[in-house]
Design a binder for these strands. Structure first.
Lengths: 215, 215
DNA sequence: GTCTATAAGTAGATAGAC
DNA sequence: GTCTATCTACTTATAGAC
């Protein structure tokens, strides 16, 4: 890690960098961190390694930039839901969870989690940044929905950490499983996204509402 | 992958192999798969690389052996609970979840999950084996408790896949988080094992019992 | 900014003596 | 079974011309 986090030291990240980041993200997702060489990245971008190193001082910086690049989009999605005035807290949570499920298995940043785990050991800085810039805001936004529901009397009082644990736990694990077993031809039978999503949301809502849930 | 899965082709795995496996597991857990070189393994075992390659035909075989080595212990723990005659299904589930929490953050095989994710891309065989030899039996055992509870009328009818999703999801994610952020000095404040364990268990049980849960 | 060329090092894996 | 010595391939990263 040479510069500041994620190679974002320039106030405006150039188009060239964005091109590299997006191409590299694909490679990382497909082959993992250590399975992706800087030569392969350069080749995929149609540039030489030296040029690549001109834009990013090291492989870890490039990786951090890939991770960071996905933050904004993923969080805007959630912010959008939180800000809506026409929805009850219950409806907001329902929509938020639905979007979290979708983005965790389809968006780059969601699919990146196993890679971040891989890299965290060698670059704790990346782990720190991921936590502060992604997990903490994600929690804060979900927490806003919880607060709103409790203030309006829609939800009963629950422990905040437990709430995050029960909401994000199954989502992250499902995303991880689907990445791990991506080569399975019967992936959807083993890890059926829509069905688990529906059941999980229903369970969380009935938990928060203090009503007896239906199996 | 040269021999059969996990280098377990010999009916009796020699003591030497076990020694290597245990030392290597430590290294893998500390530095990841690609962060652990065969030279480092050999050094840690006090042998040369050539000797190491005499025992294990390749790095992937060695890794698979490390993963497989933890299965038995982790599953015996669960089997023990399932087999007890003096416990109700409710009590069994309570104990099983408690043990799953403990083993997922302390036992090698539990802590290995992020590594398996890392390796799965390059060696799908390892992913398959992990699924068939660890996840499937783990699910079967937990499923037995669910069945028992439903037959005895302790639990209401719930979707089986959803049950696994809600039970294992938070546990796996907590384990993954604690591995990812192992370098945090305030790890227990961010991911408090005991507290999340308690809340999660209470939530699952009240869900299965169809009673209104307490926050 | 982009290139060619190459440094400097490490990876997994093997041959063959003892 | 264990060793010494070595091979090939590939890694991240850089120097310096254009």
């Amino acid at each position: 890690m040479h510069g500041s986090i994620a190679g974002m030291e320039d106030s405006k990240t150039t188009d060239r960098k964005i091109e590299i980041i997006e191409a590299t993200t694909e490679l990382f997702l497909e082959n993992g961190f250590s399975g992706t060489s800087m030569s392969a990245v350069a080749k995929a971008c149609g540039i030489t390694k030296a040029t690549l190193y001109h834009h990013f001082p090291g492989k870890d910086d490039l990786f951090a930039a890939c991770v960071t690049n996905g933050y904004a989009a993923a969080q805007d999605d959630l912010k959008c839901v939180v800000a809506r005035k026409d929805l009850s807290a219950t409806e907001k949570l329902d929509q938020a969870m639905q979007r979290l499920y979708e983005s965790s298995v389809s968006s780059p940043v969601g699919r990146m989690s196993p890679l971040i785990a891989e890299v965290s050991r060698t670059f704790p800085t990346v782990a720190r940044a991921f936590h502060q810039d992604y997990i903490v805001p994600q929690r804060a936004l979900s927490g806003q929905i919880l607060d709103e529901g409790q203030q309006k009397g829609e939800f009963q009082e629950v422990d905040r950490d437990l709430f995050f644990h029960l909401v994000f736990g199954p989502i992250v694990t499902l995303s991880l499983s689907r990445e791990m077993f991506a080569t399975f031809d019967d992936l959807d039978r083993h890890f059926p996204l829509a069905q688990l999503n529906d059941g999980h949301r229903a369970m969380i809502l009935s938990w928060l509402q203090g009503t007896a849930p239906q199996g």
